[in-house]
Design a protein around this nucleic acid. Structure first.
Length: 266
DNA sequence: AATGGGACCTGCGCGC
DNA sequence: TGCGCGCAGGTCCCAT
């Protein structure tokens, strides 16, 4: 469930703590997390590579390396990065030449590590939509006006906008007072503008709280993010709507649990 | 183009 | 108490 705010939190913390370090070795506890290339080539190529820059595209982290290659990390549902490493629950450990280590953990083995020669042309990255924090109101309005998809699955479509998942989709639609089952094209220009504003406000606020620790997300330090305390509807089924006090409902939409207040969201 | 389902995984909470 | 089951969701893939 790490979404844009959680991944951006990690990116900033990684930039401050491991950028510039050189990898001495990679310790593999479960090779399944390495998706590309094979384990041996992965380990060999990373040894003696220096981390030059750490970028984010949607929910993906990209470590640009001195070798010209890039390490792409997608945490999916339960991936964690912890620095300095503690050695607990690891699938893989990056050892740096200063003696410190970066732990990679993933309870469910959904997360992916890929070593890429050209990360910009990797299909998942290439097909990502714009970053919602950098999107303009007119572009968003035009994109949404053409879509018959329900607005919540649309916001979660990474080729539409990059970085919003189930949690923040529920939060921003509540704040914009828009029902998650509305068709994208049914939104008025005013509603679309309001929605983009709420998206940007919410993501920025969540970043300032270092993300939401529901389920498995942890900051790089291993501490939880604090944004759960600010949730309006996500994970709050039966609790009072912060606006009208009616119990928050939970429905299924596009196969995903969806939290809303049907009195406030039209 | 939109929608729905299954697959990948594992730990948790629920009901019996 | 203990067991089996459904559920959680990011992404891909297939079918309709």
């Amino acid at each position: 469930m790490p979404e844009l705010p959680e991944v951006e939190t990690l990116r900033r913390q990684l930039s401050a703590s491991v950028r510039g370090k050189t990898i001495r070795s990679v310790e593999v506890h479960n090779a399944r997390v390495i998706r590309e290339p094979g384990k041996d080539a992965f380990v060999r190529s990373l040894a003696r590579a220096r981390i030059v820059e750490i970028l984010r595209r949607g929910k993906a982290l990209i470590f640009e390396l001195s070798t010209g290659k890039a390490l792409l990390i997608h945490l999916k549902m339960t991936g964690q990065l912890v620095y300095p490493g503690t050695g607990l629950g690891n699938r893989l450990v990056f050892h740096f030449d200063d003696g410190t280590a970066l732990d990679f953990r993933d309870r469910r083995l959904f997360a992916e590590l890929r070593l890429l020669s050209d990360w910009k042309t990797y299909p998942f990255i290439r097909d990502l939509g714009p970053d919602p924090l950098a999107m303009t109101e007119s572009a968003f309005r035009e994109m949404i006006a053409k879509k018959k998809t329900k607005i919540k699955p649309l916001l979660m479509d990474q080729t539409f906008v990059a970085g919003i998942g189930n949690l923040y989709a529920a939060e921003v639609l509540f704040k914009a007072k828009i029902h998650p089952a509305r068709q994208g094209a049914s939104l008025s220009a005013k509603e679309a503008a309001c929605l983009l504003t709420r998206i940007q406000e919410t993501l920025r606020e969540a970043i300032s709280y270092n993300g939401s620790s529901v389920d498995q997300f942890l900051q790089l330090s291993g501490l939880p993010g604090r944004y759960v305390s600010r949730h309006t509807v996500y994970g709050r089924q039966g609790k009072p709507c912060p606006v009208c006090s009616r119990p928050v409902e939970r429905i299924t939409l596009g196969g995903r649990g969806t939290y809303l207040c049907s009195r406030c969201q039209k």
